[in-house]
Amino acid sequence: MKTVFEKTKGLTDKTFHYCPGCTHGIVHRLVAESLVELNVLDKAIGVAPVGCSVFAYEYFNCDMQQASHGRAPAVATGIKRVLPDSIVFTYQGDGDLASIGSAEIMHAAARGENITVIYVNNAIFGMTGGQMAPTTLIGQVTTTSPNGRDPLTDGYPINMSEMLAQLIGSTYIERVSITNVKNVKHAKKAIKKAFENQINNKGFSMIEILSTCPTNWGMTPLDSLKWLDEKMQSVFPLGVFKEVK
């Protein structure tokens, strides 16, 4: 018997604390597998955010640092500049990257820092109990928009990938999703390419991964995947927004 799939060595044996059906686990796996396959796990340094994935440092089998809310790209900048041979990545949610951390991510991209940003967008603040996030869709019900997000009072969702792709400093920006086997495999390729860019000193890469939050969306895990495909992808279209060859 040949093993065709087992848990990667890039992750620790600790059981994830995430809710049932939360796709953080899939993204963790893709990042860890990419680091192992590129043979850079022992020189990788991850920066964990504030949010559901705050305990990412317990799961990744590499050096990790936990940053203040939204400040992961600033911390990653410091680490990469002091240890230029290390492979530095941030793992951030939309509540961390697109709201309180919007300044840090913009300027890290504008400076063209040679880091890899893994941005998990699930259109809601998960850890704090399902409040409206900058990425919440128009009409989406959250605990702070019980009648659905109203653009007159709450504004419109922010498309971070499109925004960052406009900056001269960014190198590779792609949005992917993990709703089925094909999309997961494609997401893995994108994440791996983002790390390859860093290894080749190409500059700032960000992969935005559309993700689900069954608990706070109030859906089953399977309905969440369907909702992501049907509703979220019309606001956050998949694709490569920038790739400097």
Partner: peptide, 10 residues
């Protein structure tokens, strides 16, 4: 591939 908790070995 889809298991978020990586509990499956194939």
């Amino acid at each position: 591939t889809m298991c978020p908790d990586l509990i499956i070995t194939v």
